[in-house]
Design a protein around this nucleic acid. Structure first.
Lengths: 216, 216
DNA sequence: TAAGTCTAGTTCTCTAGAGAACTGGTTGAC
DNA sequence: GTCAACCAGTTCTCTAGAGAACTAGACTTA
């Protein structure tokens, strides 16, 4: 909680209305939270999970019920940065990164295979973290453990063929067609935090997204 | 242009600052546009093309250059509403609709086949319009000719197999795998205006979208 | 004609303050 | 112990106004 507008206005030697306007701006930017009769609080950044939940399991009965597939982490290690990820991260001279591999399943069947590349040294500690203890969503973990907020992402969907690894994990024959997603995720400052490549079983794959003014 | 805040405040018997606050709200909602030293104007709604341009041709040289593929309209006629579209439009008892079929090409090769269903009677006039004269983007036409603004859309991507028609238009063998997009587009009030089903050639298909706070 | 100057009209920023609306805790009656 | 009433502190809405910043057009001048 921060001091009242009365106190702050006095402290900074400005009129009350001016202080109100300034605070209103910060509220609009999502940095403050005001409650009438109570006070003004610094808003802790909340990860908007609803914005980033695109993967929908193809449920024949009711495709409108969103489900979060189970998550199984395969490995987490320090590796040299592959060229695609290098390009995504931009000019920053990063040579090493953390690579996380995981499979996402639904009803026990593999759905997605994910290769996730994260910046060093920001995510150094991830290597010694017990990831099995966390939930299936990664971004809330980033926020809680590392103080890193993911606030925007660009996804690019296309079709490709499975690699040796992804075929094995998705229980497909090598060179089988797969759905491919490349994601670049950023913090509020626009800095690229994560590069992700996902392979998905095409027959169950479904990606939903809403653009523009979100309807109420 | 609307009267000055001075005049309006006097006319409605409120203080100037109050009128200013009210107008500020309308500006934030995107309904008014104020220019210092000039006046306040009613903002005409602008279609945010950048929000809805997802299709990117797979350009091996530079995938970052966005291109708008050529558009070729095949047909435009009144048809009974198919069940999927009925579901999208919701409770409204609409039995007939306008169906637009078109192919989108790049470098002369077919890329996407689109079936677009639009509400009646809103789009009655579309049947007698010369669509060849318009550009490759539909939503600006909706706005200019019918005063209908598309402000949000939900896309759902998946994989399927070509229909007889889509295979023919995309120059594929029947039952070939295709990318499938279903889109539901709405006006600012949340009313569903359009239902669209798109089939795309998988090897050239690429869909890009950015979520969350758009980076500057 | 062309360029600079002025001016009325507009929005923007800030001051100073009153009263309403609301919240969380304290007090008091039963 | 429970519940209602009260109260200090907070944000919200609105009033009244001064001066700065800016714009478009009219006017002046070379």
């Amino acid at each position: 909680m921060i001091p009242s507008e009365n106190r702050l206005a006095e402290e900074y030697g400005v009129a009350l209305a001016t202080m109100r306007m300034a605070m209103k701006q910060l509220v609009d930017e999502g940095l403050l939270d005001r409650r009438r009769g109570t006070g003004t609080f610094v808003k802790q950044p909340a990860f908007r999970a609803d914005l980033f939940r695109f993967f929908h399991v193809h449920d024949v009965d009711d495709p409108d019920i969103p489900v979060i597939p189970e998550s199984r982490i395969l490995s987490c290690q320090k590796v040299p940065l592959p060229p695609e990820a290098q390009k995504a991260f931009g000019e920053d001279p990063v040579s090493q990164c953390v690579k996380l591999e995981r499979v996402r399943l639904w009803s026990g069947e593999p759905l997605l295979f994910e290769e996730i590349y994260l910046r060093l040294p920001d995510f150094e500690e991830l290597l010694s973290l017990n990831l099995k203890a966390t939930g299936p969503l990664l971004y809330p973990v980033f926020l809680e453990k590392f103080g890193i907020l993911i606030s925007s992402a660009t996804d690019e969907l296309s079709f490709g063929i499975a690699t040796e690894t992804s075929a094995k994990q998705l229980e497909l024959t090598p060179d089988a067609p797969v759905a491919v997603i490349q994601r670049i995720a950023r913090n509020p400052a626009g800095r690229v935090i994560e590069f992700r490549r996902v392979h998905g079983r095409p027959e169950r794959f479904r990606y939903r997204v809403t653009l523009g003014d979100q309807p109420a």
